[in-house]
Design a protein around this nucleic acid. Structure first.
Lengths: 203, 203
DNA sequence: CAGTCAAATGAACGTACAGTCAGTTTAGCC
DNA sequence: GGCTAAACTGACTGTACGTTCATTTGACTG
């Protein structure tokens, strides 16, 4: 990589991070190119040297953010652990990730959210990253099924629902329907996901 | 109610329904006052006889929609049923409601969503309706706990998570991560919510 | 039918903001 | 230092859209 490419890469990151900060602060509606430029300490025109349209800027920022977050969770996985412990650890890793990206996720999870058209280039890219993560979680569940650690459930379905519970936990905080720190939900989600609400304890 | 009031009420409904149709078709971003006026077959100015701002129009349309949907579910409840059957029926009622409001909910659940500021008048109103519904579901769960039909779990937490699984089911369809009809998820959610993924069946 | 008035209309206005581009700065090179 | 090209700037442009208001419509009254 040449020196220029390094600088270009650096600028790109700066702008994308600025965009995410602006989204977190002003919401999707309030995210203007002017604000991103100000936040990134570059002129408006500079942004258009790196992105063709505002849409491309915003969507790229979101997709990159998603990519980084899923990578973080993936990195914490340890396939050699006993299946149930591995699932528990996976859930905790998700919670850590959610907690440290609250501000950014707020824009995606409540209120003014994304405007990606599913059938567009960006929409497909977004779904690729998202689906890959669900697939990964599903594979962990499949592994647990193969080991007889959990019952035979559709792993894709369960993985998706787990994801909904996780983002749901964050949403509940952000909507002020719960006030204790996010982390304290982790065990409750583990319990609910593993055992449901049924009476008889199933260990 | 006088004749004029009836007409006013009718116009109001027309405009709000038009607004929801436009939201469903064009998304939040693409919902303009011009489009709503065209859809409602009134002049742009007429809208401003009923609403002070576009924000009020949109937020009122959303809140009314939410109110109608939650009322629908509430109406289907039968407190005299055995607790577990009651919960199952409640979940199925939610699925029916979700299925018949897919187009409108799409705008709230994926992509271009709501822009209600939580600390505003509309935000509080929205949260009131939403929280009331969660409270209702929680009360059904509390009832089941009192009857010893399910284990002692925080009913508010469980009610919220159930809601997340339900909207999650719809989201999964809308994101094309599942293709079978929405209704077929109903049983899977009942199962997962009641029993979790644990190995030992708990009936 | 003329007169009254609230309801409705849609052309016009103002503004916010995405996108452009002529001019300026910076960096590399001889 | 002078030359060149690329990077950067920010004032400017065009437009989409929320909001206003002078005018028109039509229902009702006497």
């Amino acid at each position: 990589m040449t020196k220029e490419e390094v600088i270009k890469e650096y600028r790109l990151r700066e702008i994308l991070e600025a965009a995410r900060r602006v989204m977190a602060r002003y919401g999707m509606q309030g995210t203007t190119v002017d604000r991103v430029a100000e936040e990134a300490k570059v002129a408006k025109g500079t942004i258009y040297l790196y992105f063709d349209t505002k849409d491309e800027l915003v969507n790229t920022a979101v997709i990159e953010g998603l990519r980084e977050m899923t990578a973080e969770v993936l990195a914490s996985d340890d396939p050699s652990m006993p299946p149930l412990d591995r699932i528990r650890k996976l859930i905790l890793a998700h919670f850590r990730m959610l907690a440290s990206n609250q501000d950014f996720l707020k824009t995606l999870i409540i209120g003014n959210s994304l405007d990606i058209e599913l059938e567009s280039q960006h929409g497909r890219e977004f779904m690729r990253v998202y689906a890959a993560h669900v697939d990964f979680v599903a594979s962990v569940l499949q592994d647990a099924i193969d080991h007889g650690a959990i019952r035979r459930i559709d792993p894709q379905f369960a993985a998706f629902m787990l994801g909904e519970m996780l983002t749901g936990s964050l949403r509940r905080r952000l909507l002020k329907l719960a006030s204790s720190p996010l982390e304290s939900d982790a065990e409750a989600v583990v319990e609910l996901f593993l055992k449901g609400i049924a009476t008889i304890p199933c260990d």
